[in-house]
Design a protein around this nucleic acid. Sequence first.
DNA 1: GGCGTTGGCTAATCGCGTTAGCCTCTAGCT
DNA 2: AGCTAGAGGCTAACGCGATTAGCCAACGCC
Lengths: 208, 208
Amino acid sequence: MPRAGLAPAAVIEAGAALADEVGFDKLSMGLLAERLGVRTPSLYKHVDSLEALRRGITVLAIREFTDAVFRAAVGRSGPDAVRAFAEAHRRWALEHPGRYEATVRAPDPGDAEEEEHRQVSNDVMQIMYDVLAGFDLHGTDAVDAARVLRSSLHGFASIEAAGGFGLPRDVNRSFTFLVDTLITGLQHAPASAPGEPPAGREYHPTGG
Amino acid sequence: MPRAGLAPAAVIEAGAALADEVGFDKLSMGLLAERLGVRTPSLYKHVDSLEALRRGITVLAIREFTDAVFRAAVGRSGPDAVRAFAEAHRRWALEHPGRYEATVRAPDPGDAEEEEHRQVSNDVMQIMYDVLAGFDLHGTDAVDAARVLRSSLHGFASIEAAGGFGLPRDVNRSFTFLVDTLITGLQHAPASAPGEPPAGREYHPTGG
DNA sequence: GGCGTTGGCTAATCGCGTTAGCCTCTAGCT
DNA sequence: AGCTAGAGGCTAACGCGATTAGCCAACGCC
């Protein structure tokens, strides 16, 4: 565990790049070592284990993802913000498939190693709340709406990345349809369910 | 490759059950062998490889999943059908986490081994079209709507299964909110995008 | 009542993660 | 300039999971 300044970050960055090429789950110490022009055991001077490498890539990826969607949505509001957010989400996932896979892993609650992961996950949720701010959603509805947005966009991205839609041709159309459907649905948002009065905004430190 | 009648199916069934316990990706030949009271190499008398075992579980799982959602939706229409379908989808994913992971794998186009996989995937899409039949969606809108439904439900299920939502408490509420949002959005379906006139229903043999 | 097939087993190979222990280069101190 | 410590690379070796080879017992069938 060398406390050298640069090396560990460079290794994780290289790992992220490699994950984008071969897939996050196909990432191996041997492959990364080869990519870095080094023998496999040498990597252990910079990362503790494959698992630690994966954690590092996950945190890095979520940071980059957060940055991308934030830039897209900032300065916009209402449907415009949702569209920009969704567009950025999808584009980022397509351009960084390995990293995107990494962002999906949920932090293990109770694992101290995952603290940083929980932190950055929360930032994304915060952006979603902001993006949805113009939709007159109150109380727990805001939480629900953020989850709706997250689920739908994640589902689309993950199916698309896996090649799960048939022809790639009109996937763009389908994505627009998805976003429009969500916006329309959220604008005519169902009132809170009976017996579940809107409460103060819930805050979920673990994200979502 | 013994052509024995029963054994292979039993092994795959046991593998599916084990996947539900330990996770589809944590499934190993050794673990399954132990579960079956047999030494690891003996399994190779019934399945060709771990990869083949996974394929078998995937096909089995999609069949079971299809059956479950079909039973839920049959005899219903409109929003009622969508709600029943969504409910069944979510429940099945929660009750069979390993199998659900298995259903997510997209068939590799061009891999002859995956033919059966493509077949059963298509059945699910067909059910989605039927479920959405009451929504006055025509032409390519029907394809888009099916993709919307699939993406959203898959995203929700996969995040929930991974423990990606914070507290498990009001996840039920959020799911209802999701389904209501989708139904509302689809009822006020956006007209086909300008310049994209509705065409005959597209058929995607690879599903989706 | 032999004989082949089925299905299990042990032994061995290979790839990958990981550890141990060695060696070199270099920066910094004297 | 010369010494030293540690960063960072290397080889050797272990463990484990997938897979293959080759052997052997039970069981059905004629």
